[in-house]
Nucleic acid binder design. Sequence first.
DNA 1: CGTCGCTATTCAGCGTTACTATGTACTAGT
DNA 2: ACTAGTACATAGTAACGCTGAATAGCGACG
Lengths: 110, 110
Amino acid sequence: MGKQMTEMLKGTLEGIVLAILSVRPAYGYEITARLREEGFSDIAEGTIYALLVRIEQKGFVDVEKIPSEKGPPRKVYSLNAQGQEYLDEFWTTWGFLAERLGQLRDEGGK
Amino acid sequence: MGKQMTEMLKGTLEGIVLAILSVRPAYGYEITARLREEGFSDIAEGTIYALLVRIEQKGFVDVEKIPSEKGPPRKVYSLNAQGQEYLDEFWTTWGFLAERLGQLRDEGGK
DNA sequence: CGTCGCTATTCAGCGTTACTATGTACTAGT
DNA sequence: ACTAGTACATAGTAACGCTGAATAGCGACG
């Protein structure tokens, strides 16, 4: 993907991952794979793992280690109450920005 | 504004400013004021000026120095062809992201 | 005349974030 | 033994927006 997307993901990628976790718990490798399927083709694994460490330290998720049939044990993350609250704020912020941008786009006549 | 907005603006603020310039040329102080009116209450002046320097160096805008009735001369920026092209790319990138996020938001049932 | 307030631009230093590029470890198939 | 797929981790880098301050021109007011 381009540099534009890279910069645009700053601040939103965290919300995206939290939103994924709000649907149901998931582990890092799984999240990466799902993002790739959904078109975020160039999101590096390392990026997701680092992000997961961050949201864990912020206390937005609960973690459970579950053995895998193939490979090392999975760290399954689930959104907790604090994370849900932060996710709600995220949607509010995103909503504001999306509204402004939509308006600007119309003004530009595109 | 919050830290969320700060991070989310990374990568989008540049597009926002280019979109503003696509409507009509403007100078730094004016852009800052307009953004504040439109709800981006806490965007620092320094941020805008730094951004303007950046997009000038990238060759997205043409610059003209015009004396002001009150105060030092204004640097009026206008979007050129290369900037318009970049702006188009920006809208494409934004469109993709907004679509994904909209979908995620629906899945989350919010 | 001085200084206060508005206009207008610039810059050094900082924190946060995503990317690059690795490395580790476990299992299954050939 | 070797490879591929699964799964996690981390050190170093670059980009971006913010903080806080400095500089400077101009008008109005006491």
